[in-house]
Amino acid sequence: MSNEHAIAASPSGDAAARDVASAHTPFRYGQLILWIVVGAVVVNFAWIVANNENFGWPVVGQYFFDPTVVQGLYVSLGLTVIAMALGIALGLVLAVARMSSDPLASTLSAWFVWFFRGTPLLVQLIFWYNMSTLFPTLSIAIPFGPTLASWDTNSVITPMTAAIAGLALNEAAYMAEIIRGGLLSVDRGQAETAEAFGMTRMRALWRIIIPQAMRSIVPPTGNQLISMIKATSLVSVIAMADLLYSVQSIYNRTFEIIPMLLVAVIWYLLITSILNVGQGYIERYYSRGERRTGGAAQGAKPAAAAVAGEASH
């Protein structure tokens, strides 16, 4: 066996090949110069921004941990968690219904996705907030029959419930398509194999299909979570005291518009940066099987073994 084949066959063959390749890679002076130029531009811009008094950095530091701002931050985070949880749960139901062979379930799911993806979120929030204009009372009744219970709409649709309903239903429409795409990415043979082992369709979905689909579902879901953090700023138009509404209430008193907007921007950037790191860990967790087996084709055998293991239980 030649030396080249010996290196390739050894466990460290890939690392050795990369070392040999890197040893013969010429040093790129043009790339170094480009990095220096870009670094100089970035540092210069940061210096200009830091020394520009019009940004009001002392005001930013003064109000960054202001109780009103922190309370608004808690509201934004709470809305994000609740709306995403409801959106993912409802989106999963809609995705399964959309893929169902039942025409009624598939049609209703398609209509839901069409409506809530086709109208702006801001418009949906305003409609929810003004629900009492359309329906002064909300009631539970038998169709064309007696009313069983009724409530005043204003007592039910508060700014909080309007925000949660608008954000969650809008998110559910997007999550339904994300989850459906992830489920479609799993080889149909997995479900057929599970059924051949005697597993019910629902058990195969939860224990076999969804875990494999997570690799395709997690990245866009992380993007949706980050988008949801920013989308909560829209609830300020319905007098919901989120982060943006809180900084607006302060600069309406102090007229420090730019510094207070910077407070909100920095908080949003901090939160999204943390979420990006968490998303990276989750993506690596769900892709560990692919890295371990060296690809989807080699991962077919472990997947089949998982089906057999689940069926035995």
Rank of each mutant, 00 (worst) to 15 (best):
N130A: 04
I229K: 07
H5G: 00
T68N: 10
G189V: 04
V41K: 02
A46S: 13
K230Y: 01
L169Q: 02
G182S: 11
I88D: 03
I229T: 09
P143F: 05
A16K: 15
A300M: 07
N154P: 11
S233Y: 03
P146I: 00
E171L: 12
E4A: 11
D66R: 08
N276C: 04
A311N: 15
P143A: 03
H24Q: 15
D102K: 02
V123F: 13
A46P: 07
G189L: 07
G39I: 05
N252D: 05
K301P: 05
V59T: 02
G72D: 11
N170K: 01
P103H: 07
L244G: 07
G87F: 04
A204L: 04
L205R: 01
I210C: 00
A9K: 15
T153G: 08
S312I: 14
I258Q: 02
F144C: 02
L122F: 13
G145Q: 05
Q124W: 04
A8N: 11
R180N: 00
N252G: 04
T147P: 05
A85M: 11
A296S: 15
Y74G: 14
V265W: 11
G289V: 12
M99S: 11
L148G: 08
F64L: 10
S139R: 15
A296Q: 15
D14M: 11
L79C: 06
S22E: 15
S106I: 00
V123S: 11
T133R: 15
I226R: 06
G13T: 13
S216R: 05
A110W: 02
V37K: 09
F45Y: 13
T272F: 06
I209L: 14
R207T: 00
A191N: 00
S155Y: 06
E171R: 06
S287R: 14
T68C: 05
N52P: 01
I274N: 01
S132W: 10
Q124T: 14
A168Y: 01
L275K: 12
F255M: 02
Y251A: 04
F197Q: 13
Y174W: 07
Y281A: 00
I48D: 04
S287I: 09
A15C: 08
W151G: 11
V263A: 03
R117Q: 14
W47Y: 09
L32N: 07
M131W: 11
V235Q: 10
S10H: 14
V218L: 10
I142W: 08
L121R: 08
R203E: 03
S246E: 04
V42E: 06
A196V: 11
P11S: 14
A304L: 09
I36G: 06
M199E: 13
E177A: 05
F116L: 02
E310A: 13
P220V: 03
F255W: 06
A89D: 03
V38G: 09
M131Q: 07
W151T: 08
F144P: 00
A97M: 15
I209T: 14
G289S: 14
V37N: 06
A194L: 08
N44C: 03
A163Y: 01
P120H: 14
A162W: 06
M214L: 14
Y129L: 07
V59M: 00
G280R: 15
D152T: 06
A149G: 12
S12A: 09
A305F: 12
A311R: 14
A308D: 13
D187M: 09
I238E: 10
F45G: 10
A21R: 15
I157H: 08
S249G: 13
W47L: 00
G56E: 02
V93C: 07
F135I: 08
